[in-house]
């Protein structure tokens, strides 16, 4: 299996590889934001249920 490039590595020179790398990083960032929001909404719901 091909190892994943580190975040701080310079962007690859091949345009398609660069596009895929940036897109993958965006997907990971979006997934983290969505996950954090899901946890936050769950916590808010629990707090509101207790009030």
């Amino acid at each position: 299996m091909k190892p994943m490039p580190k975040t701080n590595d310079p962007l690859p020179t091949d345009p398609e590889a660069r596009r895929l790398r940036v897109q993958r990083q965006r997907n990971v960032a979006m997934a983290l934001v969505m996950g954090a929001l899901a946890i936050l909404f769950f916590a808010i719901t629990i707090v509101k249920l207790k009030v």
């Binding site: 345009p15 660069r18 596009r19 940036v22 897109q23 990083q25 965006r26 960032a29 979006m30």
Partner: peptide, 8 residues
């Protein structure tokens, strides 16, 4: 703009 915008 061929490259998607970086999240940063």
């Amino acid at each position: 703009l061929a490259l998607p915008t970086d999240w940063r």
